[in-house]
């Protein structure tokens, strides 16, 4: 088994990894995987890789990518805005369709990546469905949650108490990720709404925190599957960079996608 194809695109601005089936074949649907952010990007990375590999082996092309200012993409996090990440989804869909030959795309987004997915969906005419994996519905609350995780985590390690306050320029240091004041504000003001999407979508909401979600409108075909799993990032016991591979979630997501591919 060879490694996936890693590449830079958009003039080096973004980094992606393409998982193409070994035997070229006509495909209708390809899957774009929208990463979570901050520590959760690290935590979910291998799970995304495995899901993409499983789909590839079943003949479904998949592409993972790093948001602008994160991972192996260009620039630094403090130069990014939530809006950049939303716009980039469209660029990635274009790249995936070009490289895979697929006419339609399904998106997978976990945590804040699900919020980016939902925010981008209204402008994605080729999108036929989305997997929202423990989605962050209110990005402003997520930011507060990250700051609280930072306070609890550092409190366990540091001799001096950490203030947990933003810097003089309004920036936040979220466990090594430099979140500028502008980025924090763009996340706080983001209000991704699935009801803004007017075209037909199939949606799977899955994970340990989706049971209470009630889809706002009825013209989507929505499945909700509560599948609990431990999430070290939000409840740090042994370390904030525990890698997460919840097999049951991955299996269910894979089956849901294969049924629609």
């Amino acid at each position: 088994m060879n490694a996936p194809h890693p590449f830079h695109f958009e003039g080096g601005r973004l980094f992606g990894c393409l998982h193409l089936p070994a035997t070229p074949q006509p495909v209708r649907v390809a899957v774009l995987m929208v990463q979570p952010l901050f520590g959760e990007y690290v935590q979910y990375h291998r799970a995304y890789f495995l899901l993409a590999e499983h789909l590839r082996k079943r003949g479904v092309p998949a592409m993972r990518y790093d948001h602008f200012g994160t991972g192996d993409s260009a620039s630094d996090l403090h130069e990014a805005l939530f809006e950049h990440w939303v716009t980039d989804v469209g660029l990635c869909v274009r790249e995936l369709r070009k490289r895979s030959g697929a006419s339609r795309v399904l998106l997978v987004g976990a945590r804040l990546g699900a919020a980016v997915t939902v925010a981008a969906a209204a402008d994605l005419a080729h999108m036929v469905g989305a997997v929202l994996w423990d989605p962050v519905w209110v990005p402003a609350q997520h930011l507060d949650e990250l700051v609280e995780v930072r306070r609890r985590t550092l409190g366990r390690y540091l001799k001096q108490p950490d203030s947990g306050l933003p810097g003089p320029d309004g920036s936040w240091d979220i466990l090594g990720f430099h979140c500028s004041g502008a980025l924090a504000e763009s996340i706080r003001s983001a209000q991704p709404r699935i009801e803004h999407v007017s075209h037909e979508l199939e949606i799977l909401a899955i994970g340990g925190s989706v049971a209470g979600w009630r889809p706002p409108r009825t013209h989507y075909r929505v499945a909700i599957e509560e599948v609990p799993y431990p999430r070290g990032w939000l409840d740090p016991q042994d370390g904030i960079y525990d890698v997460l591979v919840p097999v049951e979630v991955l299996n269910r997501v894979e089956c849901w996608i294969l049924d629609r591919a």
């Binding site: 540091l158 001799k159 090594g176």
Partner: peptide, 13 residues
């Protein structure tokens, strides 16, 4: 100083 195992604060990094 003022760091943890993963250098999880910007000044430590």
């Amino acid at each position: 100083p003022h760091s943890n195992h993963t250098f999880a604060l910007q000044p430590a990094q």
